[in-house]
Simulated assay, not measured.
Amino acid sequence: MSVYAVDIGGSSLKHGLTTASTYKITKNYMRMSAKQHAIQIRRPVERGYVVNWTLQGDILQDILPNNKEHTLLLTTPLFTPEKLLLQQEEVVFEEFQFEKYSSVVPQSMVFKPIPFACVVDLGFSSTYIVPLIDGKVLLSAVRRLNVGGKLLTNYLKECVSYRQWNMMDSFELIDEVKEAVCKCSLSFINDMKEFANGTATTLQWALPDFVQTKNGYLMEPQTAVPDSTQVLRLGLEQITVPEILFHPSDIGLDQAGLHGGIVEAISACPEHFQSLLYQNIILTGGTSQLPNLKERLEKELRPLVPAEYLIQFHTTNDPIGAVWKGCQALASSGSMPIVTKAEYQEHGSNICRTRLGNL
């Protein structure tokens, strides 16, 4: 059976035939402006859900195989509204005319060999904390934090626009800056004091001029800035942007931080599984690549977790493609549930809910 798997993310699509050695990455948005310095972007995904299947269909049209006999495997977020699920299935069977279709929860595809785990998926639109009991999602224990890579980039964009250059229309550029300079602080108050008294290092990011240079770059400390180069100077922003993960209330979000969400999720599981879950906390997703994240998270969790529980973190070798690789393993296992086009035409979307599970 030939399977084409697509992991639909808010930032990008990870896709490819599961028989291939690796996957491809395609940006999951459309540019509405040709200006490189001020790009207007339309995204089909909002708050983690595909809300515009017309736009999403146009993007998928360019990457899906022409052979409709392939089984199309899509990732679908937990708690997707029924209306959006109906649109997704309609696009698969009626617009793209695929003969077979399957859908999986992305977090359940990460580290499949571990039967008991707490998957912390730090994605583009949000962060999901998903306990897996015997490999299955415990829906009542799932927690979601409305902080992801997009919010962190937007916050950094506002900070530098207020203090330096107006970067409000430069999401891609600021996203690149965030990935290069931001890190989780292991002692936030002390680090803030160092920036205040000038002992911490302020980084300089050289902005592209889009004539001779198309990409920015991080300058060496103490390097003289050429007259023709504009730079972003990043001091406090290095640590205050990732701090939103641990204290969302800093920007007005009435939610517990990442460490609080993990404790809430695991505490909602049966008590005899909690020790196992704390020993198998899996960090995945693009935002999980922030430097010092694992160390800071352990520091925040230890006072909240019973002393007799061991806390251990696992990271995936490829946080961006971990879900797609899980889909690849599922397809090769021969146990993937499938809905055919004939079954869909006879029973409608009810057959998808019954066979593919409650998303």
Rank of each mutant, 00 (worst) to 15 (best):
Y155W: 00
Y155N: 15
K157Q: 12
V160W: 07
V160L: 13
V160A: 09
V160G: 11
Y162R: 08
Y162F: 08
R163T: 13
W165D: 09
W165K: 10
N166P: 10
M167C: 12
M168C: 06
D169S: 05
D169A: 08
D169M: 11
D169T: 05
S170W: 00
S170I: 01
F171L: 08
E172Q: 09
E172W: 01
L173M: 09
I174W: 04
D175E: 14
E176P: 01
E176A: 02
V177H: 04
K178S: 07
K178M: 08
A180F: 01
A180V: 03
V181E: 03
C182R: 05
C182P: 02
C184R: 08
S185Y: 02
S185E: 06
L186I: 10
L186T: 08
F188C: 01
F188G: 02
N190E: 07
M192S: 10
M192K: 06
K193G: 00
K193L: 00
E194R: 11
E194L: 02
E194P: 03
F195S: 05
A196P: 01
N197I: 00
N197C: 01
T199K: 06
T201K: 04
T201R: 06
T202Y: 03
L203T: 05
Q204M: 09
Q204W: 02
P208V: 04
D209Y: 10
F210I: 08
V211R: 12
Q212I: 02
K214T: 06
K214D: 12
N215Y: 10
N215C: 11
G216R: 04
G216D: 03
Y217K: 10
M219I: 01
E220V: 08
T223H: 05
P226F: 00
D227N: 09
D227F: 11
Q230C: 13
V231I: 14
L232E: 15
L232Q: 12
R233C: 12
R233S: 15
R233Q: 13
G235Y: 08
L236G: 12
T240H: 02
V241W: 00
V241S: 04
P242T: 01
E243V: 07
L245Q: 02
L245H: 03
F246C: 10
H247L: 11
H247P: 04
S249T: 13
S249R: 15
D250M: 15
I251C: 15
G252S: 13
G252D: 14
D254G: 11
Q255F: 04
Q255M: 15
A256K: 15
G257C: 14
L258Y: 08
H259W: 10
E264F: 07
A265Q: 12
I266S: 07
I266H: 09
S267G: 02
S267L: 01
S267R: 06
S267H: 13
C269T: 14
C269G: 13
P270L: 13
P270S: 09
E271L: 09
H272V: 07
F273S: 10
F273R: 13
F273N: 05
S275W: 14
L276W: 05
L277Q: 11
G285I: 04
G286W: 06
G286C: 09
G286M: 13
T287W: 10
T287C: 09
S288L: 06
S288P: 07
